[in-house]
Design a protein around this nucleic acid. Structure first.
Lengths: 338, 338
DNA sequence: CAACTTTATGAGATCGATTGCAGGAATCCT
DNA sequence: AGGATTCCTGCAATCGATCTCATAAAGTTG
């Protein structure tokens, strides 16, 4: 049916082994025969059979991408970057969505091992680090992104949530704000905890106390943003700035501010954590903390590629954590307090 | 190294063939031996080697998902739905991003054929229908989504752009609006053309002419939304409603409206084509046309599954088109004209 | 020029699961 | 009981590429 290596070999007048070597870029072959084989392959329209190749060589040229969902902006940015870099390096990406369910995640990791993926990028629940370690000893590369499991051998590439929140808060402080409202995620979420820590730290460095009346923390939903903003402004109409650390909530925060007739940045300065596309073209364009999703994707795939080529890092570096810096992107939603 | 079928067979005291049949759900096997083999497999932690299986059986249990990008809301909804349904049916998804570049698309299709995918879901450029047909004759299932190539054997699952735009416009007309502004995509894009046709049709049915001064068409960017809205409102301050048929432009349209002090729906009614998540929680929640992305994903994977199980449709049905209905989701951004 | 490298090629085994074919056991029928 | 069926099971070939090992050819050296 399809053109096989055997056909190419016959057409080129060489053996299968020679044809294989010629096409896989082996050194033990003369340039002359390589040229002959390559032209034969081209002429016949030869396409290697990856299944056969994977079976024999134990290299599938597949990597698994395991993530909670695709809706979150950072996640699909990472997915896109990983896919592109993988393709450029000759790998294909198997996409798996877990809905943050450790059970599904386990099933998915099993499936991926059946397909003998060469590597894995995981935005995980952290509950399957044991399985990941198992895969690593059997030669699969593994890199965690965004979320680092408590244990496990695989390196993790993390965003600088605390530093980002710190930078955002300090920016507002430097503009002269003293009553900075905070709307963010709960302690149960890593990012919720870290970002709040960054906010607190920036205030303390200025010798300011954290005023609990200025803080609202809750789930990652627009509804929470609406409620939190309403409650905050009713309680503390003297707030001159707002740091939206929970980016899903922004969809509730922004219309609530507008609905109350507040002008940004004239009446209230606003910073949002996460550089969502449309905040860029908002009127006024919103100052944000860019957590570097694209860079996270880039770095984690590069680490993976390294593992796949050179094998895992030595034991000493087990569970190493890499940080990708956060950047404050100043636009037009902040000014000095009225 | 890993546990193979041979190990399971030995442990269960049967031959490899019997073990294979027991685990692959063949009929030609007694329930007793099946139980023995299954328990042995479980005990040893057997994981089948998909590469070997694919090589022999010519079934990889992989499907390719080829799409322009992941940013677009409809696209990542489709990706997520396809992934989940595939997983439920025992397939894994290889994600490929083409940036709407026919050349990249071709490369990607080649790669996928090397990995001998059992099926393909394509949001394509339409320029590689020949390659898709080739894959189909060699037994791969193919389904197009969102965009249908001009030729080709594969069925297509399309959104009802025209009907959706028609419904949105009619809704505004029924509320009493007579000056309905239109901001949409260009003729070069399928959706741009179809949606504009729906808008025109609805007006004509009411005996109204399309007023070119009320129409702005341009690229899928927020910047265009901003400029278009400014121009429109300067030119025709008498417009009482706006239909945003180009959803990327909404990010520019909405802040411009707010910036001009227009109250929605009091001063201006607004309908947006595409049910973007955050429009749901906007203040007021925005009336939208839901193009049924989830349903598109569901249907196209079901068609693919059918092809993979039963083979392609007979020749008579070549290139068949399925339509997924659009729904007007009424929320609170529309009212009668002032 | 013999002995020894170096380099390029081929023969054949191999990866692990599936499957066509043949045959044995059990069951059914007359 | 003898023959025909039906039902299970095992043997061995097979999918297509890779890789080890052996060997031929060419090149090097004393």
């Amino acid at each position: 049916m399809a053109v096989t290596l055997k056909d190419v070999a016959t057409a080129a007048g060489v053996s299968r082994s020679t044809a294989s070597r010629a096409l896989s870029g082996s050194e033990l072959i003369s340039e002359a025969t390589r040229a002959v084989v390559e032209s034969a392959a081209l002429r016949l329209g030869y396409r290697p059979n990856r299944a056969a190749s994977a079976l024999r060589s134990r290299q599938s040229r597949l990597v698994g991408l395991v993530m909670n969902n695709l809706i979150n902006a950072s996640f699909h940015t990472i997915a896109e970057v990983v896919q592109k870099r993988a393709a450029a390096a000759g790998y294909q990406v198997i996409l798996c969505i877990t809905d943050s369910d450790p059970g599904k995640e386990r099933t998915v990791l099993r499936m991926l091992s059946e397909h003998s993926v060469d590597g894995l990028v995981v935005i995980g629940t952290g509950d399957n680090a044991d399985l990941c370690d198992e895969l690593m000893v059997s030669g699969t590369g593994v890199v965690n992104v965004i979320r680092a499991p408590r244990s496990g051998r695989a390196p993790s590439v993390l965003a600088s949530d605390r530093e980002g929140a710190h930078a955002a808060t300090r920016h507002l402080l430097e503009l002269g704000h003293r009553h900075i409202a905070y709307v963010g995620g709960p302690d149960s979420a890593n990012s919720g905890r870290e970002r709040f820590a960054g906010y607190q730290q920036a205030l303390r460095e200025q010798g300011l106390e954290v005023d609990p009346e200025l803080v609202e923390r809750g789930p990652f939903t627009p509804e929470f943003g609406t409620n939190a903003t309403t409650a905050l402004l009713d309680r503390r109409p003297d707030a001159t700035a707002l740091f939206a650390a929970n980016h899903e909530a922004v969809f509730g925060i922004l219309p609530t501010l507008i609905g109350r007739g507040l002008r940004i940045p004239h009446d209230l300065s606003l910073v949002c954590h996460e550089d969502i596309l449309w905040l860029r073209s908002w009127q006024p364009p919103v100052t944000v903390v860019d957590n570097g999703a694209a860079e996270l994707g880039r770095l984690c795939f590069d680490l993976l590629l390294h593992q796949m080529r050179e094998g895992p890092q030595p034991d000493g570096t087990s569970g190493r954590v890499y940080r990708v810096g956060a950047n404050l992107v100043e636009r037009e939603s902040c000014t000095a307090p009225p």
